[in-house]
Amino acid sequence: MEHIAFLGLGHMGAPMARRLLAAGHPLTVWNRTAEKTAPLVAEGAGAAASPADAVRDADVVITMLAGPEALDEVTDAVAPALRPGIHWIEMSTVGPDAVRQLADRVGEFVTLVDAPVMGSTDKAAAGTLGILAGGDPTGVAHVLARLGSVTRTGPLGTGAALKLVLNASVITGIAVVAEALRLADTLGVDGDTARAALANGPLAGAVARAFAEDVHFDTALAVKDLALATRAAELPATEVALAQLRRVAEPGTDLSVAAARIRATAK
Score class of each variant (00 low, 15 high):
D104L: 09
D218W: 04
H87V: 07
A58H: 02
A17C: 15
A145R: 07
L255M: 11
L162A: 13
L144C: 12
K36I: 12
V74N: 05
L221Y: 04
L226T: 11
G201P: 03
D190I: 01
D190H: 07
T238H: 05
K224E: 13
L65A: 05
A126V: 03
P137F: 08
V99H: 03
P26E: 13
A237Q: 10
A259Q: 09
L147I: 12
H11R: 14
G10S: 07
T230V: 15
A175C: 14
P80H: 06
L187Y: 11
A180D: 03
V106M: 07
G134D: 12
G148D: 07
T186Q: 15
V177F: 08
A199F: 08
I62V: 15
D59E: 14
A38G: 08
K123A: 13
V189M: 10
S256Y: 00
T75S: 08
H87G: 03
Q101G: 06
L82V: 10
E35M: 08
G201A: 15
V106H: 02
G107W: 03
P68T: 04
S256Q: 02
P15L: 14
R146H: 15
V94Y: 01
A115F: 05
K123C: 01
H25R: 12
R146L: 09
A17H: 01
H3P: 06
P96V: 09
A259V: 04
A212N: 07
G157W: 06
R152M: 08
D53V: 05
H142P: 02
M91P: 01
I262V: 13
A222Y: 00
E73I: 07
H3Q: 15
A133P: 07
E108C: 06
L156W: 00
A184I: 13
T172L: 01
P116H: 02
G134C: 12
T121C: 01
F109M: 06
P51Y: 01
R105Y: 11
N200I: 08
R19L: 06
L164V: 14
V74Y: 01
L71R: 00
P39Q: 11
A125F: 04
S169V: 11
